[in-house]
Design a protein around this nucleic acid. Structure first.
Length: 473
DNA sequence: ATGTTC
């Protein structure tokens, strides 16, 4: 492919000029340095711009990196009523992967004497690593179906949570219109034994402290103050979500030609939103998303029990938000409201102050946007801004820059654990190899990703969190 | 990310 024609459009904003089959331009929010890191994934931004019905631009967040079909850090919206498509690759394999943050009624100093006990407790009760493992033993397929339909809402109804939790969950804890019939038997099998488990890779549960507050009023509305202890959970929909993606990519690849759709990469398999295959995927995706939300709800409950037992502290939910999802939303396009299918893959919803879908106590300040760092590095809490580009989306974290293999060559797991412990971060991992693959050097600097996201006008900083202890898959 | 290659 010839080199793309990239123009610097404004501060931290680059435009990829349309050419070939591109229906819209590409827009990449990045610094010069992060743009360099993007490399070949910019070709993926250009490929996404060819999708039928795409409106505005094919967007990329500052943490863009190579993904399946779509780049990770990609945002694309298609016009539902004008032949717009939905693409499983635009959501990713880990459907509804996201972040949940809880705030303790406790400071770091208060926790300090009990930190080891808390970490040991978390290390014992948090299932993690590849394969089965679950906090919640489901009674069978019937109950799994209720999880797929009701997400965190069903978990809370069953006693796994506090009533106030759902106010602080995106979509009130459950994506509507889940269609259990579109989730295959194999996906169900994989899902039965994994509700309430971290998984592996960059998924983690961290005990953190609020190291710095950038906006006191907004932080207070979120329930955050300096020195406070927090728990951050980063995980997704495990094998069930992965299987749903695989199943529906296969179907769409088979039928795409019947809809006259031609894409430059088979990994961009898609179908019109208003087609049997498009609706089937969205129904299955919603079910997998609800599984991911229930997963985080159950892990939060496990953490609450450990904190209550070891220190008496209570954990309140700050927010739970996905960074891998497609949603049907209404946005202004050329001055007219239009129904759009907004794909966010490695990009976080960032609703601005005033958005009607926010709960009352957050209406004036905007949605908490949760950005996980890499093991041993800081994480961020941001909020949405009025007029934010890219359909109210921002970054999702630090992108990987080193392969798992390369990362594991630079450091051993035991050595890395010693290093982190020396830096004051307690580590409870399940595999030395897995730990080494997640060494911080393998990732971009999350601080610069957040700085550029703010500079590009996508979000606003609220607080910085630093790790006290990490539980890793 | 993923019963880390149906």
């Amino acid at each position: 492919m010839d080199a793309l024609d990239i123009v610097e459009e404004g501060p931290y904003r680059y435009r990829i000029e349309p050419r070939g089959g591109m229906r819209v331009p590409g827009v990449v929010f990045a610094s010069r340095e992060l743009l360099q890191d993007a490399g070949k994934s910019l070709d993926q931004v250009a490929n996404v711009a060819t999708l039928p019905g795409i409106v505005g631009a094919s967007y990329a967040m500052p943490d863009i990196h190579w993904g399946y079909g779509f780049p990770i850090g990609g945002v694309a919206a298609t016009a539902v009523d004008h032949g717009g498509v939905v693409s499983p690759g635009g959501v990713g394999f880990d459907i509804s992967c996201g972040v949940r943050l809880l705030a303790a009624d406790q400071t770091q100093q208060e926790l300090a004497p009990a930190l080891d006990e808390v970490m040991d407790g978390l290390g014992q009760v948090i299932p993690r690593g590849a394969g089965p493992g679950a906090v919640w033993r489901l009674s069978g397929r019937g109950e799994l179906e209720r999880v797929l339909d009701g997400g965190s809402r069903y978990a809370v109804e069953q006693g796994h949570g506090e009533p106030g939790d759902l106010e602080r969950c995106e979509d009130g804890g459950a994506v509507p219109d889940a269609d259990v019939e579109q989730v295959s038997g194999r996906a169900m099998e994989r899902g039965l034994g994994q509700v309430g488990s971290l998984g592996s890779g960059n998924h983690f549960l961290e005990v953190q402290r609020v190291a710095e507050v950038y906006d006191e009023a907004v932080a207070a509305a979120f329930g955050l103050s300096p020195g406070q202890v927090c728990v951050m959970i980063h995980c997704g929909s495990r094998g069930l979500g992965h299987q749903v993606c695989s199943d529906h990519v296969r179907v769409m690849n088979r039928v795409m030609a019947q809809y006259g759709i031609d894409v430059p990469d088979r990994q961009l398999a898609c179908a019109p939103v208003e087609s049997p295959e498009g609706r089937a995927y969205l129904g299955a995706m919603a079910a997998a998303a609800n599984y991911g939300r229930a997963n985080r709800q159950l892990l939060a409950e496990a953490a609450r029990r450990i904190f209550r037992r070891s220190t008496g502290a209570r954990l309140s939910l700050v927010y739970d938000v996905s960074h891998n999802l497609a949603k049907i939303e209404t946005h202004q396009v050329d001055g007219e409201p239009q129904r759009l299918c907004v794909h966010r893959k490695g990009a976080t919803l960032a609703l601005p102050p005033g958005d009607p879908s926010l709960p009352g106590d957050l209406r004036d300040v905007g949605q908490p946007v949760l950005i996980p760092g890499t093991m041993g590095t800081e994480s961020y809490v941001l909020t949405g801004v009025v007029g934010g580009g890219a359909f109210h989306s921002t970054c999702h974290g630090a992108g990987r820059v080193m392969s798992r293999h390369a990362a594991a060559r630079t450091v051993g797991g035991r050595e890395l654990r010693s290093r982190l412990e020396a830096e004051g971060v307690a580590v409870r991992s399940s595999s030395w190899r897995g730990l080494a693959e997640e060494t911080p050097e393998a990732y971009k600097d999350v601080s610069s990703v957040v700085e550029v996201s703010e500079g590009a006008g996508l979000c606003r900083g609220v607080a910085r969190l630093t790790p006290l202890g990490v539980v890793k898959g």
